[in-house]
Computed example of a mutant assay.
Amino acid sequence: MTTPPPSSSEQPARTRRGQAKAARRAELLEAAARLMAAGGFAGVTLEDIGGAVGVSGPAMYRHFSSKTDLLDQMLVDISQRLHDGGAEVVARGGDPDQTLLELIRFHIDVLVTKPDLIAVQDRDLSSLTPAANHQVRSLQRRYVEQWVDVLLALDEVSGDRLLSREEARVRVHATFGLLNSSPRLPAYPEPGLRAVLGAMAWAALRAE
């Protein structure tokens, strides 16, 4: 006997439930990032995270099987966001100098809007499960190579010098180190912070 498809009234209800679950998951991840950035992965419990958004301890397990599972999802999410955003910038095409500027702006936008996630990623990467660690590092490597490809294209077009791929990769990693330290910087107005970080990143990448 064939099961009839869900009625039109059931489908919106399921959609609403899915949207509500996704919204609550995002809320929990944001709270977790905030608490872990302040207290470290080891210093925060699932109950602490749930309590920050009014979710009971047992209800947390409807979203995450453990605190480590939550960390896995959080850092895979931010790594995927960086990789996909970088790919989108590169896919737009255009001159290499403009593409590199757009990559810098994109990265800074993530830093400024999600500083807690960047702080957790920088400090607690070693607490991931091996599978999530592998996935995060793979995404990070591919994100780096997006920048390296654009930097090498700009170097070739400008004719100033010809970087080796190894040197270009070192410059990109060093630039990420500079930018990703921004959550630990003294308080500074956001427009000025974006401008300072952007100028310093460009100078680091294109230094003679």
Rank of each mutant, 00 (worst) to 15 (best):
A42E: 15
V148R: 01
D116P: 01
D77M: 00
D72E: 02
D122K: 12
A201P: 08
R92V: 11
E167Q: 08
P115T: 02
L154K: 05
R62C: 04
T99F: 07
G40H: 00
Q121N: 15
V55E: 06
L128Y: 07
G86F: 13
A23G: 10
D122Q: 15
Q19R: 07
D97Q: 14
H63P: 13
N133Q: 14
A31S: 07
T45C: 03
E27W: 05
P58R: 03
P12Y: 09
A195M: 05
L197I: 02
A119Q: 12
M1C: 08
S65G: 15
L125W: 10
R17F: 12
L70I: 00
R165S: 09
T2E: 13
G198P: 08
A26T: 05
A132Y: 14
A203Y: 14
L46D: 09
D155P: 04
L82A: 11
P12D: 08
L152K: 02
L101N: 13
R81I: 15
L103P: 10
D97L: 12
S8G: 10
R123W: 13
L185Y: 13
L205M: 04
P12C: 02
V136C: 03
D84A: 05
L71Q: 03
A153I: 03
L71M: 04
G93R: 01
R105H: 14
D155E: 08
L205C: 09
R137D: 14
W147N: 09
P189K: 00
G85N: 06
R25D: 07
A20D: 14
E47D: 10
R165H: 12
L101K: 11
E167D: 13
W147L: 04
D155I: 01
F106C: 05
L139E: 07
Q73P: 09
G85Y: 05
T99N: 06
Y188V: 11
D124R: 00
L82V: 12
L117F: 15
L162E: 15
D124W: 03
A59N: 12
P58H: 06
Q146S: 12
N180H: 15
D155F: 06
G85F: 05
I118M: 01
A207V: 14
T175N: 06
D97W: 14
V55Q: 05
I78Y: 02
L100M: 08
L117K: 12
T99D: 05
